[in-house]
Computed example of a mutant assay.
Amino acid sequence: MAVIRRRVVVTGRVQGVFFRDSTRREARRRRVSGWVTNREDGSVEAVFEGEPDAVDAMIAWTRRGPVRARVDRQTVTEEEPTGASGFAVV
């Protein structure tokens, strides 16, 4: 089974709208490992690792986020998988 890893940074109204918790729930539902965190600049950063279709689904989900979010910009960077397990809000 192929595993990929992507780092995603989203900007807009993404803090204070349950973006991190919603991302955690979506990742666990899709069996994607990694983490999500708020950054000091007001953006949200996440790392997704898992099967390509599941990671791609998470990237697509973060383009819109939860209902109260407004995503203005998304940056996706490819990374080498590290064997991550579980998904955390940090």
Rank of each mutant, 00 (worst) to 15 (best):
residue 23 T to W: 06
residue 40 E to W: 06
residue 79 E to P: 03
residue 27 A to G: 10
residue 16 G to S: 05
residue 36 V to A: 10
residue 75 T to W: 06
residue 8 V to L: 04
residue 87 F to T: 01
residue 67 V to I: 13
residue 19 F to P: 13
residue 80 E to Y: 03
residue 87 F to G: 05
residue 58 M to G: 11
residue 9 V to P: 06
residue 28 R to V: 06
residue 40 E to T: 09
residue 29 R to F: 04
residue 76 V to T: 14
residue 34 G to H: 01
residue 30 R to D: 12
residue 5 R to T: 00
residue 73 R to Q: 15
residue 36 V to G: 05
residue 45 E to P: 03
residue 84 A to C: 03
residue 22 S to T: 15
residue 32 V to A: 09
residue 34 G to N: 01
residue 16 G to V: 05
residue 37 T to Q: 13
residue 56 D to L: 06
residue 4 I to E: 14
residue 66 P to Q: 10
residue 71 V to F: 09
residue 62 T to D: 12
residue 9 V to S: 08
residue 45 E to W: 01
residue 72 D to V: 01
residue 31 R to D: 15
residue 90 V to I: 00
residue 29 R to K: 14
residue 56 D to P: 11
residue 72 D to S: 13
residue 39 R to N: 09
residue 84 A to N: 11
residue 46 A to G: 02
residue 43 S to P: 04
residue 12 G to E: 09
residue 72 D to A: 06
residue 19 F to H: 14
residue 83 G to E: 12
residue 53 D to G: 11
residue 66 P to D: 13
residue 26 E to H: 10
residue 34 G to F: 01
residue 42 G to N: 11
residue 21 D to K: 11
residue 25 R to Q: 14
residue 39 R to L: 13
residue 31 R to G: 12
residue 24 R to W: 05
residue 63 R to I: 05
residue 12 G to Q: 09
residue 89 V to S: 04
residue 76 V to Q: 12
residue 25 R to S: 08
residue 30 R to I: 04
residue 28 R to L: 10
residue 4 I to N: 06
residue 16 G to L: 06
residue 56 D to M: 10
residue 27 A to M: 04
residue 13 R to Y: 05
residue 24 R to A: 14
residue 22 S to P: 10
residue 20 R to G: 13
residue 86 G to S: 05
residue 71 V to S: 08
residue 80 E to H: 08
residue 20 R to M: 07
residue 76 V to P: 10
residue 70 R to N: 09
residue 41 D to K: 01
residue 79 E to M: 03
residue 45 E to L: 01
residue 70 R to Y: 11
residue 33 S to V: 02
residue 66 P to H: 10
residue 64 R to P: 08
residue 46 A to N: 04
residue 16 G to K: 06
residue 19 F to K: 11
residue 7 R to T: 02
residue 12 G to K: 07
residue 87 F to Q: 08
residue 21 D to F: 10
residue 60 A to N: 15
residue 9 V to G: 01
residue 12 G to V: 03
residue 45 E to R: 04
residue 50 G to T: 09
residue 68 R to K: 13
residue 45 E to S: 03
residue 26 E to G: 05
residue 4 I to L: 05
residue 87 F to D: 11
residue 55 V to G: 13
residue 7 R to V: 01
residue 85 S to I: 00
residue 30 R to G: 11
residue 21 D to R: 11
residue 15 Q to H: 08
residue 68 R to Y: 07
residue 71 V to I: 04
residue 62 T to A: 15
residue 77 T to S: 04
residue 38 N to S: 07
residue 39 R to K: 04
residue 19 F to T: 11
residue 66 P to G: 10
residue 79 E to Y: 00
residue 25 R to I: 02
